[in-house]
Computed example of a mutant assay.
Amino acid sequence: MKGTGVKMSKNMLDINNLSVSFLMYGQGLEQKELTVISDLSVSVKEGEILAIAGSSGSGKSLLAHAILGILPNNSRVNGELLYCGKELTRKKQEQLRGKEIALVPQSVEYLDPLMQVGRQVIGVDGSKEKQKAVFKKYGLEDSVKKMYPFQLSGGMARRVLVSTAVISNAKLIIADEPTPGLSKEIAQTTMGHFRALADEGRGVILITHDLDLALAYADRIAVFYSGTTVEVAAAKDFNTGVEALRHPYTKALWRAMPQNGFQPIEGSQPYAGELPKGCLFAPRCPQRTKACEERPSMRPLRGGEVCCIHAT
Rank of each mutant, 00 (worst) to 15 (best):
I205V: 11
G123N: 10
V144H: 02
G59R: 00
L197Q: 07
S61I: 06
L161D: 09
M24P: 06
M1W: 13
S153E: 11
D210F: 09
L62N: 02
Q287H: 10
I15D: 10
M298F: 04
V144R: 05
D237I: 03
K132D: 03
H310C: 01
L114P: 01
P296S: 04
L71Y: 00
G54Y: 00
V104A: 02
K99L: 07
H193L: 15
I49C: 03
I15H: 10
L111D: 06
Q259G: 11
C307E: 05
G278V: 06
K145S: 15
S43Y: 14
V166I: 15
R119M: 06
E33T: 09
K92G: 09
L62A: 12
K184D: 14
H310T: 05
A66C: 02
K128Y: 11
L40W: 00
C292G: 02
A66W: 00
R159P: 02
N16F: 09
P276N: 15
E200D: 11
Y217H: 13
M12L: 14
K7L: 15
N239W: 02
D237V: 01
E177L: 05
E48T: 13
I49F: 01
I67S: 10
R220E: 15
E177A: 03
G192Q: 00
S183D: 12
V166A: 09
L111E: 05
A51K: 05
L197N: 04
I49R: 08
K60R: 09
P258Q: 15
R302G: 09
I167F: 00
Q93C: 12
L275Y: 03
A218I: 03
T4H: 13
L211H: 09
A234C: 05
I174L: 10
E141T: 04
G304A: 05
E243W: 07
L280Y: 15
E266L: 14
N169H: 10
L206Q: 07
N78E: 12
L103C: 05
A311I: 08
G126K: 02
E30C: 07
G59Q: 04
A51F: 08
I101F: 06
K290R: 10
V232K: 12
K60E: 01
S107E: 10
E177C: 09
E46V: 12
V162R: 07
A196D: 08
K91D: 09
N11K: 15
R295H: 08
A244H: 05
V204Y: 05
E294I: 08
L29P: 04
A53K: 12
K60T: 00
G3F: 01
R119E: 13
G54E: 03
V124S: 03
C84A: 14
K146F: 14
P296V: 04
A235D: 04
A234E: 10
S268Q: 13
V242Y: 01
M147W: 14
E231I: 12
M191K: 00
P149S: 15
